[in-house]
Design a binder for these strands. Structure first.
Lengths: 201, 201, 201, 201
DNA sequence: TATGAATGAGCCTTCATTCAT
DNA sequence: CATGAATGAAGGCTCATTCAT
């Protein structure tokens, strides 16, 4: 009734691709997901929405259409990566030896967690939108690790009084990137932890 | 030479309101430090300044006088606790056995880190104000742990190819509170890590 | 001359999805009109377009095709009801006695206005799109009332120094629903007003 | 932690008064009240906050400090005027004759309502913030009118089966400014209504 | 020195409007 | 013709920071 918006915004960019090709909404959603992943990694979960949309090459409105709340975006990003991680476990479990497979997968997981810095803290922010989220995500990874862990335990190469879930959490913590951390810090600390995990005595 | 150096203990105040007269700026600074510690713990480092000043019972202006930048406050809070932690190490080192002392101090440290959640992420935020800060703080703790670690290594109870600094960092990570974490999660994971640390083979 | 003017009732449609084929644009326009009437009543004239289109079961684009500006929709809604009101006057004028017919029609009009709450304020919003609109709409009702009013005046049952237009406006105002209004408030106040109108002295 | 606001905004306006004189918060609140009154009258209750603050010569923040919610401002504006209206009643009641006083006060009230257009609709918006507000405001005016009404009734100049509250509401409705309204429209319609009110038969 | 009112930049979010399909 | 995804301007609101008192 009152909005007197200027008729059109005109072309925002002479150069870019021929834009707005009704590129099947999915394109936008995916681009946003990707942009968010990058933006979150660079600037944390509180990164301004504008930064994400610019990176994705879409308007803010599009972000809100696909991910009404910030948490929706965060969840989507996490879920997307978790999926990849689970897949990796399947592939690894049918390959190398018990210990090797365990180590390999943990390496993959470490990599994943390493780029998720801020995300974790968002999950614990108390925002009701994340209610049970960490748990839910973690549960998807538990089976992946459990299999590998069982094989190792069966081979006498791992203690059996620790749950896959706990190991997962511990590894996740040790995978956090640290400022003055020399290269391979995470890997070496995780190795020590795994050593402790092998102390079956 | 007879003028008392004490800054006018009996300032004239007949007129004005009974305002907090010359109430030693230090009082404010301390109150703010305390309030910040609490506020940070409750709401993270991004807690609104107002919340801190309200808690401290001072005006915002006072916060800015004592701690011009948010980082100044964060640093102060951390430094304050680090000091207490270092002191504890001194006391412990001259008490129990090598391993016991090590474990005890790490327990103390764990406790400290456990309540600092958000602070850590602030340090890694990339903000130039924290340039080298984590390092600097860590360095103060290194000597504290190194002594305990050396004693343990000398007694054959710890590998010697890991620096005190690395152990400190690893423990700090494992001390992070986790959401679904059962009681004693941190302690148990740290125990496993220490087990790995004892694997001198 | 043998070609049927009916626009291809049997359009080829073998391929595409069973889309609403040539579903008479009128259907959409009508559905929108109806939806708008409801939406306006519920949420005022500023109700988001989306809400109207959802209610009508059409896409936003369709709304803009039929009613480019919000005012077009508002005008259409009002016009639609005015028409019904005028029709009612015709029927009533040839029925009951002077006073009874007048009262009856005003009752009908009251009902109409009562559900138009927000619309009125839109008309007075200063938006050039409504320039002269209220006048135009009002003019259509004037004849309807004038006849009834004249009959009453002729019978000495109404003063004659007030125009049908003014009466119409006054009644419209008194018909506005009021919050704490007891049932029949409008009716009773209008009755008082009509009493005043009868004071021919 | 992240806000990198440019240090200062500099002087927004070379010409204006020497600004920011700590002019006793009340000054701001009053200026805002006044500006709001004007802005509401000109552009309705939904007028952008910026428009109000510009008019008041203060920053947006100041608006939110004094009136956190839009409704707070609306209520304040209304209350302010109600007060003046009530005061007027006191003065009038001890002056002219019964009917004259009644008419005079209603004139005053009409004036008040006439400039409140949009406000009324805000009160009926269903926003919980206005819960009971109209009632509350109305109740303050009821005693003012009741006295005048009683005097008139006692003098046989007004029917007694209508409450002051109802009269108040009816008058308020008739006082609404109408677009094509000739000068004195409200007054004349109200006069007719009052005539009806005098029909004691 | 302390206070807290004022400021305004910046971010979030909604929604009118366009336009590719 | 209809659809609904995309866009981006507009406005709400918060909160860091300054500065008059």
């Amino acid at each position: 009734m009152s909005r007197s918006t200027t008729p059109a915004a005109g072309a925002p960019d002479g150069a870019g691709p021929p834009r707005r090709q009704r590129s099947d909404a999915k394109r936008s959603a995916a681009a946003l997901l990707d942009a968010a992943k990058t933006a979150f990694a660079q600037s944390g979960v509180d990164v301004p929405a504008k930064q994400i949309t610019d990176l994705a090459g879409v308007g803010v409105g599009t972000l809100y259409r696909h991910y009404p709340r910030r948490s929706d975006l965060i969840v989507a990003v996490l879920q997307h990566e978790i999926d990849e991680c689970v897949t990796a476990a399947d592939e690894l479990s049918s390959g190398a030896g018990p210990r090797a497979a365990l180590v390999a997968w943990i390496g993959r997981f470490t990599e994943f967690v390493g780029t998720k810095q801020g995300l974790a803290s968002a999950l614990h922010s108390g925002d009701p939108a994340y209610e049970g989220l960490p748990d839910q995500l973690l549960e998807q990874l538990v089976p992946a690790l459990q299999g590998l862990l069982d094989r190792a335990a069966a081979a006498g190469e791992a203690r059996d009084d620790v749950s896959a879930r706990e190991v997962l959490t511990a590894i996740a913590l040790l995978s956090q990137p640290v400022p003055g951390g020399a290269d391979g810090f995470s890997e070496r600390m995780i190795a020590i932890f795994l050593d402790g995990l092998s102390v079956t005595g």
